[in-house]
Design a protein around this nucleic acid. Structure first.
Lengths: 218, 218
DNA sequence: GTCTATAGTAAGATAGAC
DNA sequence: GTCTATCTTACTATAGAC
């Protein structure tokens, strides 16, 4: 019988990552001390360095985990039949997460770190690209289904969809009592207006595009 | 005769801020050493602390300067007669700056710092609000002029206009060979589709919204 | 106002017992 | 695998001459 239970090892690793994520979001990478991570996780310095070779590896581990979660979200979206609904589902799920201050701080921190850590940048870029590539596919399908303006280049559109998720980040940081639901509502309007087919053929005068992107007579 | 020439003092202060901005964008706040700032500015440690009480004050100084520049941009925009052109001018000018990697890194760094420095956050929020408030006024005028959908709340719209400037930040960091001109072009389309009046009354079939936001028969 | 030299402090990582 | 104790390094800010 092995002395190490791999499941237990993994569970502890995760617990450390959770504790570290909280610390990093609170104080940033450099100002978070390894001692603090240990205190939060309820372990000692020695233990921390048994699970991770150094502080940076702890930080990186958080975003490897995040990549796995993104992959799961993408897989779930591909299960949906309606590509337009799938796009909204993906964007709203990620946006909703980032409207949470802790997540927002963590994302800003990793972005700042990526500017100076090429290896970390590659990891984060991989996560972003997975999301973007999934969206490219969904946009193509939605164009075919007549739900998205065929004049838009799917690659360009998808890149901006990913970028739109980041748009409210600074306000999340600067204005703590921002209303997430209101932000998501505006995002929806923005998405519909950006993506929808430019004009219906011979629309009824005063016709309106509804919240769900449908065109209805006025 | 005074021994201190205030203009010279101010010029040196600026030179230090420029050097520091470069260092901070390159390595971030914490990993930039005061020694490095001194080396870049061509001065010694003693001199640096003659002009600024501590490292943080140097960092803060950069964004006070930025606030002044934003104020000047706003003043210039108010000189323009056409509010729609004024909105585009403001957004394009700031966006163009942020599509530069050094500026983008600096903005991400200050955002990350704002998450943990309430006083800095207040300064940056002040700069953001000045921009947003100016845009609220311009949006109102553009609505009155029939160039913007009256169904949009000017305050909400202006907040998102400011947010849209930040949207491409992570891509600027992660993809060094991003084409700024292409990004600005997409931003323009996004703005027009987001802001323009929803539907013209009885539009010609196949009518199109042009690059400048004008509606033309197809 | 500018410099050199250094005081003082703190944090990442390791050694080695249990 | 987990702990305590500590080694080592590096940086901010000051002191004090010129």
């Amino acid at each position: 019988m092995r002395t190490v239970d791999p499941a237990k090892h993994e569970a502890k690793r995760r617990a450390i990552l959770d504790a570290a994520a909280w610390c990093f979001s609170e104080k940033g990478f450099e100002k978070t001390t390894t001692a603090e991570i240990c205190r939060t996780a309820g372990i000692s310095t020695g233990s921390l360095f048994h699970y991770f070779p150094n502080k940076r590896a702890v930080f990186v581990g958080i975003f490897e985990q995040d990549g796995d979660e993104t992959a799961a979200l993408i897989a779930a979206a591909h299960e949906l039949e309606d590509p337009w609904e799938a796009i909204l589902h993906v964007l709203f799920t990620v946006s909703e997460q980032l409207l949470n201050p802790m997540a927002a701080r963590l994302v800003l921190e990793v972005a700042a770190q990526c500017a100076r850590d090429a290896e970390l940048a590659e990891l984060v870029q991989g996560n972003d690209r997975a999301l973007r590539d999934a969206l490219i596919g969904l946009v193509r399908r939605a164009v075919d289904a007549g739900r998205i303006d065929p004049g838009l280049d799917p690659k360009t559109a998808a890149s901006w969809l990913v970028a739109l998720i980041d748009a409210p980040l600074s306000r999340v940081i600067l204005e703590p009592d921002l209303d997430p639901a209101a932000e998501l509502a505006v995002l929806k309007v923005l998405l519909i207006r950006f993506l929808r087919p430019v004009l219906p053929i011979s629309p009824p005068a005063g016709g309106r595009v509804s919240d769900t992107g449908e065109i209805s007579p006025g």
